[in-house]
């Protein structure tokens, strides 16, 4: 590997994807035609806007057809200090997309000396989803959620995407993945405009519980192995993943409530 330098006319600027293409490592090559083998798919994630920021949560299960292929997938990750990305869809391309997205944000920051705006980051992710469209047509769909704290508005903001790279800013909450129907219904019933961060965490966990309860591809809290969904908050202090102990106690309360029904 050598130090690549570009002329003034063909400099890729802060665009890491373009740099990869120039280096012959272009991402998102469409898969060959024909039948695809079953590949792991990751499932349900939710994001909820609350006072002072956002809460993002996702289960840990990946499935290939009817089989559980991974129990410890990390579908909710920090994109940078003030934003999070949650993914559903084909696990391989999805994890690659997240890695590229994190790199792109950091690369831009280093080259330009300033961070991308939150809107700019959402737009960048939408370009990545769009680049994945040929693969999506063959079953390798990736549908992320992007959420972050916007210093310009002083509030949390959330976006969801469709396979074509369509980018939609949502006002209150969003869910993605195979259990999204159930998760979104649970959030819709519990959502209020004055939701605080603690209540939003409980609501996100409840949404994941309902999704896991009704959708076989969504994993619930795994008490036997001590594996819990990932719940993270993004606020003025940045991205923070809740520790497993706190998530565990939240789910224990949900279990108690369910038992009392």
């Amino acid at each position: 590997m050598s130090l690549v330098r570009f002329g003034p006319g063909d400099d890729p600027g802060p665009n890491f994807g373009e740099l990869l293409r120039r280096a012959g490592m272009g991402p998102f090559a469409p898969p060959p035609d024909g039948l695809l083998l079953p590949v792991p798919h990751a499932t349900t994630c939710v994001a909820i806007r609350c006072s002072g920021g956002v809460v993002v949560a996702g289960d840990r299960r990946a499935t290939s057809g009817n089989l559980i292929s991974h129990r410890e997938m990390e579908k909710v990750v920090a994109a940078d200090r003030f934003s999070a990305v949650a993914i559903a869809g084909a696990a391989g391309p999805a994890m690659e997309m997240v890695k590229l997205f994190q790199l792109q944000i950091e690369h831009y920051e280093k080259i330009e000396g300033t961070s991308l705006s939150l809107e700019g980051k959402a737009n960048q992710l939408s370009a990545f989803v769009r680049s994945n469209l040929p693969a999506a047509m063959q079953g390798l769909l990736v549908v992320p959620i992007f959420a972050g704290f916007d210093h310009a508005t002083g509030a949390g903001r959330i976006w969801d995407f469709d396979a074509t790279g369509g980018r939609y800013e949502e006002r209150d909450y969003v869910a993605t993945g195979s259990g999204s129907l159930h998760a979104a219904a649970a959030v819709r019933l519990g959502w209020r405009s004055d939701l605080g961060p603690v209540e939003a965490v409980t609501l996100a966990c409840r949404a994941l519980w309902e999704a896991a309860d009704a959708d076989s591809a969504t994993g619930g809290p795994d008490l036997a192995r001590g594996i819990f969904p990932i719940v993270a908050t993004v606020d003025v202090d940045g991205f923070r993943r809740l520790d497993d102990g706190r998530v565990k106690s939240t789910f224990e309360r949900i279990v108690e409530e369910v038992q009392e029904r």
Partner: peptide, 16 residues
Amino acid sequence: QLRVAGVRFADLKGYQ
């Protein structure tokens, strides 16, 4: 220019 080339070199190597 050398700095930018260095960031690119490092990010590409870390990615690959």
